[in-house]
Amino acid sequence: MSAASQRFALIAVRCVFAAKWLRQNVYLAVGTVIILAFLIAAVFGEQIAPYGANKQNLLNSLEGPSEAHWLGTDPLGRDLLSRVVVGTRHTLSVAVISVTLSCFLGVILGLISGFVRGHLATAVDAIVDVALTIPNMILAISIAAVMGAGLTGLIIAISISFTPPISRIVRGRVLEIREEDFILAARTIGVRPWRILLRHVLPNAATVIVIEASLQAGQAVLTATALGFLGLGVQPPTPEWGTLLGYGREYLHSAPFMVIAPGLAISLMVLGFNLLGDGLRDLLDPRVGN
């Protein structure tokens, strides 16, 4: 068989396996569908949304759900469905970017404290220990307060406050791996430590990292929208979900429908990430039987 057809066969087999996994693993399937749907909404928000997210129409202010505006309109007559759809981008990108950053940092710190011995590891351990005693949300609020409200501040706040737990989990896994025979074997034949770290330890820790990243993404959505709700996130008129809820709170008496859609969207996205994480855990982590 030629190399190309071999590769094709391999891909085909993998696809069959993936389909089988998805059928066996309902969590993973549902989570994947939800997150894919949000991904599409994030990329094509403007095309999907029936109206412009910031298109005002003061004659239609605070209208309840109708055929023209499925979820109603806000005080400026903006279509709520469009605002929620277009707002997907902000929440999703904040979650994905900050979890990527915190995983990157957390993995580096976790590898150092789990694999490298000496003063550096002790120092990293101490810092992570201390950082873990600052409640996540409080740390995020403080950082957001110092950085000032906005997208950058939000991402930095969440990335930093999510790094310690990830580093702790990576550390735990690395401590397990370093006791394995294959690491000893690699050491014995004289493989250099950094190579062991990158080629043997990291790939074996990858499972834990992927699962944790997915679960943390759900938490990042909750934190990001909570900061938005508190007025410390992305500023209006950007239709960020948390900010929309904060705005809707002021109209709870006259227009209670304003808070339905953004909250539903947040919950669905968190649900998607949680299911994805749980599904990945069932799939990848043989120690957790179901």
């Binding site: 809820l245 709870l252 953004p262 909250g263 947040i266 968190v270 649900l271």
Partner: peptide, 18 residues
């Protein structure tokens, strides 16, 4: 349980309030 873990507390609060 799965549903409650996905719902943001401030939205739940808003719904209860409403």
């Amino acid at each position: 349980v799965v549903a409650l873990l996905a719902v943001p507390n401030f939205w739940l609060g808003l719904l209860l309030l409403s």
